[in-house]
């Protein structure tokens, strides 16, 4: 009798939120002041989490489902347009 053989391979598929809604880790939330933003995209460049993208208004928007609230964006912003506020 032949065995029915299942080959199980530890292969994972890419997806957003692979570790879950990492936004829940956040203690402080970044708020962008569009009045000050110069659209230099330095925040996007340094964001460790890839959560900054261009919104419909052309300004950066932050995906708060995954933003871990590190504040690197606020720290590097040359226009001081990002404020971190307590959740």
């Amino acid at each position: 009798m032949e065995l029915e053989v299942l080959i199980l391979i530890p292969v994972s598929k890419p997806r957003r939120g692979a570790t879950g809604e990492t936004g829940l880790w956040r203690v402080e939330r970044p708020i962008i002041d569009e009045g000050k933003c110069i659209k230099c995209w330095i925040c996007w460049l340094y964001c460790p989490e890839e959560v900054i993208s261009e919104g419909q208004s052309g300004f950066p928007v932050i995906d708060l489902s995954f933003c871990k609230g590190c504040g690197v964006c606020a720290n590097v912003c040359p226009a001081k347009a990002i404020k971190m506020v307590r959740e």
Partner: peptide, 29 residues
């Protein structure tokens, strides 16, 4: 795809070892 990243106890680690055993037994035939 990512091959071989972290597998938790409640995921298929044990089943992957079972699968090696199954293949090994099938190899006899």
């Amino acid at each position: 795809i990512s091959f071989g990243n972290l597998v938790f106890p409640d995921d298929e680690y044990q089943e992957m070892r079972w699968s090696i055993d199954l293949s090994m037994r099938r190899a006899l035939e």
